[in-house]
């Protein structure tokens, strides 16, 4: 089966001074996939995400979203083409309330009364009602992550990039996040960067391993967890339990 990939990169590269943070990545994502991206610290995962979302300009290579060349597009154009991203560190409007944050996200997609309706829907879905009028900057780390995830989904993107969505969340909240990700995967294509292997096991179908700015291996979770190279460079003795 050859469907046109919804997102693909060819020989994508990013240099910071002499450092090649991403050193030639050929990545391809089919519509409807739920892909997990793992790899050692400094392997280039976040840099890769930032290039796809337009926050960093690649040094060379190619980025295609649904067949369109997006290499030189502005971040807002990429967002409008249907890519939503949750960055690694909570990236929200700290001085505004949760309601206002969600409203601004929804208003980038909808007009008029539809904005309020989609804010209500996402509030209910993520159980944010109790903190709706709190300033986001005063919330706990994990709560801000939820708000940011809510802001991403309310825009109804085609592709969702989640950089460490379970960071700062308790085990129970992590389970809820995994459920949420599987649920939104019915409508959206998703790429997740995470270090929490229990979390990866819960959601993963295909796992891509980054190492030193390149793709080391791409396979099913079980094969990746058993791979000796992956164990050596990434998992260590805990072995993905």
């Amino acid at each position: 089966m050859t469907v046109e990939p919804i997102l693909s990169t060819t020989a994508l590269e990013k240099r910071f001074g002499g450092v090649r943070a991403v050193a030639g990545v050929d990545f391809s994502l089919q519509p409807g996939e739920l892909r997990c991206l793992i790899g050692p610290n400094g392997a280039g995962k976040s840099t890769f995400f930032k290039m796809i979302s337009g926050q960093l300009k690649p040094t060379s290579g190619e980025i295609r979203i649904a067949g369109h060349d997006m290499l030189n597009a502005e971040a807002y154009q990429i967002a409008r083409s249907g890519i939503g991203i949750k960055n690694q560190v909570p990236d929200v409007m700290n001085g505004l309330s949760v309601r206002e944050n969600l409203w601004l996200a929804a208003a980038s997609r909808h007009r008029g009364a539809a904005i309020g309706r989609s804010v209500d829907r996402i509030t209910e879905r993520l159980a944010l009602t109790a903190i709706l009028d709190r300033l986001v900057g005063e919330l706990a780390h994990g709560q801000r992550q939820w708000v940011e995830i809510g802001m991403v989904i309310v825009c109804e993107p085609r592709i969702v990039l989640l950089d460490e969505p379970a960071a700062g969340m308790s085990d129970e909240e992590t389970v809820l996040t995994a459920e949420l990700i599987r649920e939104i995967n019915k409508d959206m294509t998703i790429v997740v960067v995470e270090h929490d292997m229990q979390f990866i096991r819960r959601i993963a179908r295909t796992v891509t391993v980054f190492h030193q700015g390149r793709i080391l291996i791409e396979d099913s979770f079980d094969k990746i967890a058993a791979d000796p190279t992956v164990r050596e460079v990434y998992l260590g003795r805990s072995g993905g339990t």
């Binding site: 610290n41 690694q88 780390h141 460490e164 270090h195 292997m197 990434y234 260590g236 003795r237 805990s238």
Partner: peptide
């Protein structure tokens, strides 16, 4: 305060 956030599993062991 949550020192393992964002750290790969093998380094957490270290």
């Amino acid at each position: 305060d949550e020192p393992t956030e964002g750290i790969q599993p093998s380094i957490i062991d270290e």
